[in-house]
Design a protein around this nucleic acid. Structure first.
Lengths: 197, 197
DNA sequence: GTAAAAAGTTGAACAAGTTCAATAAATGGA
DNA sequence: TCCATTTATTGAACTTGTTCAACTTTTTAC
């Protein structure tokens, strides 16, 4: 693992909990680095997710492919984000998700065994993941309500405003798959918006 | 707190973690019981949520009212379910949710102070809430994808199949607000289904 | 038991978003 | 650099779901 990757991970942890330098180092030792090429998959539906990952570089999408072969993006994970199928990882159950790199990437991976080791030996880590899961939880609730109460236009505009960095690294196909609309309709929304200006 | 309420709470905890009888009792002592009449609110948008609740009896709905005055139901909580606005509760931030009893209810409430006391003094409790939050997280992910990939008809049928008990305690207005459709359209779906049989 | 309120149904007109097909533009790999 | 592939745009027809209004049925409160 590069020093800068470790730095980013330690900085990320410190956003959520207080941890001594030694304990943070001990925790970081439980990760291994992996380089992933664009379009390469970290996980496919049907497989059991054997990792929880912290993105040091690059960009991933976590998505589902439905019955009709349509992609739905659950979330994107760029630098400083965590990525896994928590259900598959925790319960060792086949996943229904795909995780794929949209850009060449470096990701730090921790196994279930090592995460459980951390839970046992560094009590603060239990808190770390409780807090992180809780934050995601809040975010998911918000998204459910937004999907129910807002039109596609509004959701698109809010996406751009909330994630300007992500926006310019993503194709409209990916954004449409996140917003839950067809990419043709997204194209029409974009036209409408640009005409208004 | 009645003995039966305490029993239900202890049984619920034991579904997620192993806890000695003494520790479970100690944890239960941190809750207080509250009786809530039908249509009474536990929380309103704008307020700070001061509790995390475990439903012993009755039925609650957790919902949002959007700009246009339309209700969106985030979830229902009947016996053996937990209910709170986790964001407002944890971060002492004004809520954007309403929590209201749909039936006369009894709920066991724990304050933030008492929950933090539990975190400090009963380490397993940190794990309990991490696991519960994680389960909710999985459920919310599933719901986001379902809302994107399934029609209202399918979502209605799955709702009935997954929550038959809940279904017969809820009005179609409430179910429509959960599915994210108008109650008129739900009525038409019901007609279509009944004609098929 | 009855009046009022709330919940449920139905139809017609409408709006939001999809699908399909054709074409244009951008990107990527040898 | 050039060819193939992917991404984006556009229009027309279509589907899903909404809105509004009128009406019926059920529930609730006194």
């Amino acid at each position: 693992m590069t020093a800068s990757a470790k730095q980013l991970l330690k900085k990320n942890i410190s956003k959520h909990i207080l941890l001594t330098e030694e304990k943070a180092d001990e925790f970081c030792e439980l990760f291994e680095s992996r380089f992933v090429k664009k379009k390469e998959s970290l996980l496919k539906a049907g497989e059991i997710c054997r990792f929880e990952g912290f993105v040091n570089k690059g960009l991933f999408r976590v998505y589902h492919i439905d019955r009709d072969g349509v992609d739905q993006v659950l979330y994107f994970a760029a630098e400083d984000w965590w990525v896994t199928d928590i259900d598959s990882f925790t319960n060792e159950r086949p996943s229904w998700l795909y995780i794929e790199a949209l850009e060449d990437a470096e990701i730090l991976l921790i196994s279930k065994e090592n995460k459980e080791f951390a839970y046992r030996n560094i009590p603060e880590i239990e808190k770390l993941f409780r807090i992180m899961t809780q934050k995601t939880h809040v975010f998911l609730q918000r998204r459910i309500i937004d999907n129910m109460s807002k039109t596609a236009d509004e959701r698109y505009i809010e996406f751009i405003e909330r994630y300007p960095q992500l926006f310019h690294r993503l194709s409209n196909l990916q954004i449409a798959a996140y917003l839950g609309i067809s990419h043709e309709f997204l194209s029409k929304i974009r036209k409408k918006i640009s005409q208004k200006k």
